[in-house]
């Protein structure tokens, strides 16, 4: 028998607004920059985690999205929670920064602290470290939010018992434009895990 899976909790971070399960958590005025906005998110979550301030923008965005979804879901460290993230711009925001540090041979200053963030899956590393998730994980790139793929991949992880639940999402940071939609697929919940439901939730303007 095929086991039903559910979208138990989800979070949007876009347009300087954070919402969880469709409910507004907080909002900054639209002129505020991501650096300030992300700091507000950190404060709102009552975090005391200095690593956050070393992260690049993409990792900060993914980290905050994961915090909100995992807080709502309440997991234990020994829960087998897989992480599957996707985006369009990969780590290009930091790639450009690293390229800037090597472009001019007169001022050549490549830095390991920047270079390490030139990989999109570092976001998964950051979330895994914070929540001690030694579980299945993968990062994929698509032109746009791909509900069909995320649905198929998360379902296969659950079906093959590679994980008990899956933290999925679209986390994109490109220039000053960003978009984060993260959600948890669990065995229990109200919303069925279907591609249509994912597409609808992704578009959610709340």
């Amino acid at each position: 028998m095929k086991i039903e899976n559910y979208i138990s909790n989800y979070c949007h971070i876009r347009n300087n607004t954070v919402s969880v399960n469709g409910e507004l958590i907080f909002k900054e005025d639209s002129n505020s920059e991501f650096a300030d906005f992300s700091k507000k998110g950190y404060k709102q979550l009552n975090l005391s985690y200095s690593k956050f301030f070393k992260m690049d923008n993409l990792s900060k965005l993914a980290f905050l999205g994961a915090e909100y979804v995992l807080n709502a879901t309440k997991i234990d460290a020994d829960d087998n929670v897989a992480i599957v993230l996707t985006n369009r711009a990969s780590s290009l925001d930091t790639d450009r920064k690293h390229q800037g540090s090597i472009q001019d041979k007169e001022s050549y200053y490549p830095s390991p602290a920047v270079f390490v963030y030139t990989l999109p899956n570092i976001t998964i590393g950051e979330i895994s470290i914070k929540h001690q998730l030694k579980s299945e994980n993968a990062f994929f790139i698509f032109d746009a939010f791909n509900a069909d793929f995320l649905h198929a991949y998360a379902s296969s992880l659950l079906e093959k018992e590679k994980a008990e639940s899956v933290l999925c999402g679209w986390v994109d940071y490109d220039g000053e434009a960003y978009d984060c939609f993260m959600y948890m697929i669990s065995k229990k919940g109200q919303r069925k895990h279907t591609t249509n439901e994912l597409k609808n939730l992704y578009k959610n303007k709340d």
Partner: peptide, 23 residues
């Protein structure tokens, strides 16, 4: 489907291919 997962990407791609075929 672009797999970009640092230095495991090449072998992870094999795993992803298998999972997409199996499902």
């Amino acid at each position: 489907i672009v797999v970009s997962n640092a230095c495991v990407s090449g072998i992870l791609a094999v795993s992803v291919a298998k999972r997409m075929i199996t499902s």
